[in-house]
Amino acid sequence: MTRRPMYGQARSGSVAPLALGLLAVAAGVVGAVVLSRRGDGLRHGFEDAPRRSQRRPQSGSARVVGRSVTIAKPREEVYRAWREFTRFPDFMENVASVVSLDDTRSRWSVEGPGGSTIEFVSRIVDDVPGERIAWTAEEGTSVPNAGRITFRDAPGDRGTVVDLTMSYDPPGGAVGAMVAKMFQREPSIQARRDLKRFKQLMETGEVATARTHPVSEDER
């Protein structure tokens, strides 16, 4: 599938979708953190705050970003929408396309600065319908990354609590410099925006934009 003219944002020089998560440097660590049962690492002391909200620098080399959002739709429906990875370009700012290869594998094409494109194959490693999905980039890609999303019923019939966690390593070396350049935006901010657009799409059927014109061919 190629990019659809979904929502409007001017795309000039802007990079990074669910991004940072998508582009990480150490697949191993990345996968381990994201896939741990709690989704975002271990419990620390007497508190339930997610690891990503800790003030102290996160231990280990992997960084965890993510966000929680409540969507006024039933859990099954939200799960099904996310499971369709090919629709990510509808709400992830610089995912150009996701092509399904088989039941669990898909090829992602992510836009970089100056018109560059990064491709990798992502594999679903955990999938419990209505509850959670986890994925990780296959080994050998220049941009290892992993992500995990969980779905819970919100209290009081308010829909579904969606918790997205992604992990990446603070980049170093030559690859690091390249990756750093790509992320003009704080990855946690990007995750938050992508998740917000997902919520908009689920609840309203469209992605809010202040544009006064549809995205044109050459802006894409």
Partner: peptide
């Protein structure tokens, strides 16, 4: 948007979905 939690509570100026994600 008319569809989010706040709109359902008639708190329209608190709508979750009408402010574009970047802004």
């Amino acid at each position: 948007c008319g569809a989010c939690y706040h709109c359902s509570k008639l708190q329209y100026s608190a709508c979750d979905n009408s402010n574009p994600a970047d802004e």
